[in-house]
C-alpha cells in the first residue's frame, strides 16, 4: 500500500517535470528553427513556479476556480493508468484503454465548466473549438486503437505493452516487436491524431492567439494559469507516453523517456512550419484521409490476423 501511495504521489511529479522539460527543450528547438537562441531549457520551470507564486486577482465564481483543478485532477487520474514504459501502471485492468479514452476527456470538460463561467467569448469559442476538435480526432484515433485491440486481443494497456516486449538491452534492438511495424497504417493514423491531441499546429485552434487571444486561458491568471500550464505538461506526457506504450513497445526508462520526447519532437517539427486549419477544415481533415486510413488499417489488421 505504501508503495502505491508513493507511486500515486511520484508519478504526477515525474510526469510534470518531464512534460515541462519537453516544452522547455521544444521551445529551444523551435527557436533554432526561427533563427533565435530561445530561452534556456529550464525556462518553463521558472515560468510555472512564478505563476504558481502569484496572487490570483480575479475569479468568476466557484466553477471558474474549480475548472482548472478538475482538469488537473482528471489528468492525474489518467496518469495512473499509463504504464511508464515496461513498468506496470498503478491501476491496470482489462478495458482500461477504453477508460483512459474517457478520462482524457475529463480535463477539457472540467476546463469547459470553468471557462463557461468566465463568460469571455474568447474562452467559450476556444472551448467549443476544443470539443469540436476532440470530436474530429477521436474518431480515427479510436478506430486506430481498435485495430490494435484486434491485433493484440487485449484491452489493457499494460498487456499491449507486454505483447511487444522483447529482451531489452543497449546492444540488442528488439524494435521489431513494435506494433508500428505490425500495424504501420494505424500507427500513422494515431500519430496524426496525436498532433491534434497535443494541440500542435495545424490543430492549435483552441488557443489560436491571433483569433481568440489564447482562448480558454484568456480569463485565467496567476495560480490558475500555472495549473493550466501544469495540466498542459501532464497532457504532453500522457499522450506521448500512450503513443510510445502502444506503438513503440514502452521499453525501459532509458528508452521510454527519449522515445516519448521524440514523439513530441516529431509533432513539433510539423508544428514549426505550418499554419493552422480553420476549425471546420480540421474537422473535415480528420474525417477525411485519417478516417479512411484508419478503416484501411482495421481491414489490414484483420487480414494480418488471419
Amino acid at each position: 500500500m505504501n508503495i502505491n501511495i508513493l507511486y500515486a504521489a511520484l508519478a504526477p511529479i515525474v510526469a510534470i517535470l518531464l512534460g515541462l522539460l519537453y516544452i522547455g527543450i521544444g521551445r529551444k528547438i523551435i527557436a533554432r528553427l526561427q533563427r533565435r537562441y530561445g530561452p534556456p531549457f529550464y525556462q518553463q520551470y521558472i515560468d510555472t513556479i512564478k505563476l504558481l507564486a502569484k496572487k490570483t486577482v480575479s475569479s468568476h465564481g466557484v466553477f471558474f476556480s474549480l475548472g482548472p483543478i478538475m482538469g488537473l485532477a482528471g489528468s492525474m487520474v489518467t496518469l495512473l493508468f499509463i504504464p511508464f514504459g515496461s513498468a506496470a501502471p498503478l491501476l491496470s485492468f482489462h478495458g482500461d484503454i477504453i477508460l483512459v479514452m474517457y478520462l482524457v476527456v475529463i480535463a477539457p470538460l472540467g476546463m469547459a465548466l470553468g471557462v463557461g463561467e468566465g463568460s469571455n467569448p474568447n474562452g467559450s469559442i476556444g472551448m467549443a473549438r476544443g470539443l469540436t476538435l476532440m470530436l474530429a480526432y477521436e474518431v480515427p484515433f479510436v478506430l486506430a486503437l481498435f485495430s490494435v485491440v484486434l491485433y493484440t486481443h487485449t484491452t489493457s494497456i499494460a498487456q499491449i505493452v507486454q505483447s511487444q516486449a522483447g529482451e531489452w538491452s543497449l546492444l540488442k534492438f528488439h524494435g521489431f516487436n513494435w506494433l508500428t511495424f505490425a500495424l504501420p497504417i494505424s500507427a500513422i493514423v494515431a500519430d496524426i491524431c496525436l498532433q491534434g491531441m497535443l494541440g500542435e499546429k495545424p490543430f492549435d485552434q483552441v488557443i489560436a492567439p491571433h483569433e481568440i487571444a489564447s482562448g480558454p486561458m484568456v480569463e485565467y491568471g496567476g495560480k490558475y494559469l500555472g495549473m493550466m500550464v501544469i495540466n498542459h505538461a501532464l497532457h504532453i506526457y500522457i499522450e506521448t507516453a500512450l503513443f510510445v506504450d502502444i506503438f513503440l513497445g514502452g521499453g525501459p526508462v532509458w528508452f521510454f523517456i527519449p522515445a516519448t520526447f521524440s514523439v513530441f519532437i516529431l509533432s513539433l517539427i510539423i508544428n514549426g512550419v505550418l499554419p493552422r486549419f480553420r476549425i471546420g477544415q480540421a474537422l473535415k481533415f480528420y474525417w477525411g484521409v485519417p478516417l479512411i486510413l484508419a478503416v484501411i488499417g482495421i481491414i489490414y489488421t484483420m487480414v494480418v490476423i488471419k
Binding site: Q34, R35, K201, P202, A208, H210, L274, R276
Partner: peptide, 16 residues
C-alpha cells in the same frame, strides 16, 4: 499575415 494564420516561424524570420 503568417502569424495570423498561426505560422510563427515566418514572422521570426522576416522580422529578423
Amino acid at each position: 499575415t503568417a502569424a495570423t494564420l498561426g505560422l510563427y516561424t515566418l514572422p521570426n524570420w522576416s522580422f529578423g
